[in-house]
Design a protein around this nucleic acid. Structure first.
Ligand code: MN
Ligand code: MN
Ligand code: ZN
Ligand code: ZN
Lengths: 149, 149
DNA sequence: CCCTTTTTGAAATTGAATTTCAATTTCATT
DNA sequence: AATGAAATTGAAATTCAATTTCAAAAAGGG
């Protein structure tokens, strides 16, 4: 996102455009997703050690409100953030071995969820769906299946 | 679960059978699911005010290890427990209006999840799937659609 | 530049989850 | 029934992320 578009977005909300917010957004958007606050703050602080943890916290909340960030809570319970610039909704495959997170999108899954909800008289607004298991490298590491000889 | 079967189960684990554990199990199994610790402890304390929060905490952890309880963390982040005596795996529909939780099971969903995981080279061990929306009474309350006249 | 409002950041607070530890209880063994 | 080692209990302490507080600093409209 260009700095100017962010300034506009910010001021449309009646908020002020600050150096801190711009820096945090920049760093956040240019890093890989699913990071917790401590990680994001560490990265921000490497660039500008004056920026406090609280400001990073508040800015990530703000970005979430603006739709630029998405808050995630996987099984470990920690709050993580990911940029939404990829735009579309997606769910997650999470490796219990190495922690790798793979994103996926499946229309069949989405429509099945809606069908199930409708079957129970629910009108769904969002869902949460995470698949926990082992990625193929980790499966290979764990189960040496059978060796030659 | 009969007290004797619990005693056996407990001692098979090399643990001791105590009055507290029996009481907590009894109360836990005879109440509706998805309760947080404070709620479970409150109910236990009503029966026996001598039993401490910590013991309830540890006992629920124990029951989870024994497979008699399942730990759940829905979107509010609080840890909740439900008895597993219904046995089978299920997922949840959660009403954002009234908090009602509806359980469902859908083989098609389960197999689709496995298919998706396999497609990404993952071997899945468990998953988490919650659908958030409004139940029909809450939908009716929120959107008075159209009135006669 | 001025003034009001917002923002910042260090420190304090909150609250659930977990650990500590001395006192108590269990239970296998006499 | 008494003994004693090992497990359990429960109040209090600790942990730790999340959130709030508040005085000082910065933004930005006029
Ligand atoms: Mn993602
Ligand atoms: Mn359930
Ligand atoms: Zn892996
Ligand atoms: Zn409802």
């Amino acid at each position: 996102m260009e700095p100017d578009r962010f300034k506009t977005l910010i001021s449309e909300e009646g908020l002020k455009s600050t150096r801190q917010r711009a820096e945090i957004l920049d760093i956040f958007l240019n890093s890989t997703g699913h990071r917790n606050l401590a990680e994001i703050h560490a990265r921000v602080a490497r660039m500008n050690p004056k920026i406090g943890y609280t400001t990073v916290y508040r800015t990530l909340k703000l970005l979430t409100r603006l739709g630029l960030a998405a808050e995630r809570k996987f099984a470990d319970g920690e709050t993580r953030y990911e940029p939404t610039h990829k735009g579309t909704h997606h769910d997650h495959l999470i490796c219990l071995g190495c922690g790798k997170i793979v994103e996926f999108e499946d229309d069949g899954l989405e429509s099945l969820q809606n069908r199930i909800a409708r079957g129970h008289g629910f009108r769904i607004f969002h869902h949460r769906m995470e698949l926990y298991g082992y990625c193929s490298p980790c499966v290979r590491k764990k189960t040496p299946l059978r060796r030659k000889g």
